[in-house]
Simulated assay, not measured.
Amino acid sequence: MKKVSVLILTAVLILTATSLALGQGVLKVATEAGFMPFEYVDAETGALLGFDMDLIREIGNVLGLEVQIDNIAWDGLIPALLNGNYDCLIAGITITPERQEAVDFSDPYFESVLTVVAKTGSGISNLDDLAGKIVAVQINTTGDFAASDLFDAGDVKGVSRFDTVADAMQAVIIGAADAVVIDLPVAEAYLEANPTGALKHSGPVSDNEFYGIAVNKNNKELLGQINSALATLKAQGIYDAIYQKWFGGM
């Protein structure tokens, strides 16, 4: 009985916290700002910038809510949402069946694929070339899932997991890993921001995957509002303008 009571109390607290936040005209959002061009910290101003950041702020405008965004660790995003600390998450989060068991997702707002990043001249250009190699990934991403599947099948030597994309890339640069499996737009943005020529990416190496905004399963009302706002932004051409701003040159 105590366990049931605790679960009920937890659910009530989560719903209450969410209602209070939205009732005060605030949408509390969490992200992990190491996923350029979707979310990153401006080195000069400290502002959170990127495609996702522009999109969630425009969603807030449509809903008439002030958007407050916190930058937290990637691995803490879903736990923080489930604890009621935030109303939603936007962080280039791929919609997967496993994640859908824990949270609800908005309608997809971005389509992506995975790629392999390796040293220029390494001869690594696809997943098959990773045989016997050590693969670096950001922990609990679809790149991690793909590399883990390769490891379980005996196709790679090992998987090194890092908290950030930058740390995974650095592992390849210093020779601690042979390649990174990562989302293609993020690889392109990283290489554009670090044009040393030391690394290259292979192009698409996976099926398409889709990003969604994560919402607590207890908050169907907010989920519907976010989906409605996304549809409005697309109908008004605002979504296309944001997309062109961040990906028009890629």
Score class of each variant (00 low, 15 high):
185 P>T: 01
106 S>P: 10
172 V>Q: 02
158 G>E: 12
55 L>N: 07
121 G>D: 12
3 K>I: 11
7 L>P: 14
70 D>R: 08
170 Q>S: 12
148 S>I: 11
175 G>T: 12
71 N>V: 10
173 I>V: 14
203 G>W: 05
103 V>L: 07
123 G>H: 13
57 R>S: 15
121 G>N: 09
127 L>Q: 05
141 T>N: 06
35 F>D: 01
45 T>V: 09
5 S>L: 08
132 G>P: 08
156 V>C: 04
141 T>L: 08
64 G>D: 11
5 S>P: 00
103 V>H: 00
155 D>G: 08
23 G>L: 03
217 K>P: 08
128 D>V: 10
178 D>L: 09
219 N>D: 10
85 N>L: 05
210 F>I: 03
59 I>F: 14
65 L>G: 02
167 D>A: 13
100 Q>D: 14
32 E>Y: 14
204 P>T: 00
28 K>E: 09
50 G>E: 01
119 K>P: 05
143 G>Q: 00
237 G>C: 11
175 G>L: 12
145 F>C: 05
34 G>N: 13
206 S>R: 01
116 V>K: 00
51 F>D: 01
4 V>M: 10
35 F>I: 01
19 S>T: 06
86 Y>K: 00
244 Q>I: 12
195 P>Y: 13
197 G>H: 11
241 A>F: 15
53 M>L: 15
136 A>M: 12
146 A>I: 08
227 N>P: 13
3 K>V: 08
87 D>A: 10
248 G>P: 03
233 L>M: 14
153 A>Y: 13
120 T>L: 08
208 N>I: 02
